[in-house]
Design a protein around this nucleic acid. Structure first.
Lengths: 143, 143
DNA sequence: TCGTTTTCAGATTATTTATTCTTATTTAAT
DNA sequence: ATTAAATAAGAATAAATAATCTGAAAACGA
């Protein structure tokens, strides 16, 4: 099987998008996030912990605790979540897996892939969660 | 970690490209392929077996046996190798991992990703191994 | 025919990723 | 203070993928 992002990263993207459609800094328990994105709460919790480490998510312990966006949706881009979980290697490595793929020693699809890779990076870098909000609401409510 | 294609698929692409730069139907042992693309010969052998099953590669047993392109390089496209090893799910599934992502229920990056995904598919579908030959030679000799 | 080489197929091992479970700690409410 | 609810942390398990090994069968050459 083949993926662009790891499962953990996909779920992180989904969870962060979910958190971004609510009012700023509202706290949700892992149980609530779990219900919304349909994933076991233990996994949600583990995954949000990772994002907490990288400062995108904040957490509050104890009763009525939970997770919340640490920064405003207008300040967060999807690429940050990808970077925090999977890193940016997909945007660096040769798509055919050749070692030392570069403009000096390009693989047969080096230039074409370069263009596509940059487009993908842009897609995740240009819009903030705030700008994606309307689309996100529509998608989440359809789940 | 994150990949577009599985390791097996990457190596399959490399191996097939390598075979395409030689004269038609020349046989190479897994050992020779192994030397060229710098990968353990057992792994090469396993991977080429899979391609043999799907008819892209032919094999010959016994002494002086080995693997060869079953069809002419002018008749083979990279996407066929991807399909044989990893399948085409990357080109179908939602990049954010949302279930049921479609034009009725698009994820926040549905349209943009659709464009990129199609470009990537094109990249692998448009040129034949024959057309990539010159670039392939340059790359392989640099390894 | 016999021996050698080499693929083939399947079993095995190792590694990575995904998922679940358990325990401890924190916090809020009573 | 005590209790209940929640995360944090890390261990444990499961599953998928990557990589290696082994024995059998096939093909060639002498």
């Amino acid at each position: 099987m083949t993926v662009i992002f790891s499962k953990k990263c996909e779920l992180a993207l989904q969870a962060v998008l979910f958190l971004s459609i609510k009012k700023d800094q509202i706290i949700f328990s892992s149980q609530e996030v779990s219900n919304e994105i349909k994933v076991p709460k233990e996994f949600v919790s583990k995954m949000l912990q990772t994002l907490t480490d990288s400062g995108i998510i904040g957490s509050k312990k104890g009763k009525n605790g939970g997770f919340y966006l640490a920064r405003r949706p207008s300040k967060i881009k999807l690429i940050e979540i990808v970077e925090a979980i999977d890193g940016l290697s997909v945007f660096k490595n040769c798509v055919l897996g050749f070692p030392n793929c570069s403009s000096e020693h390009p693989c047969p699809v080096h230039d074409k892939w370069g263009k596509i890779r940059d487009d993908a990076f842009k897609m995740l870098s240009e819009e903030t969660l705030e700008q994606l909000k309307e689309k996100t609401v529509k998608k989440i409510t359809s789940l």
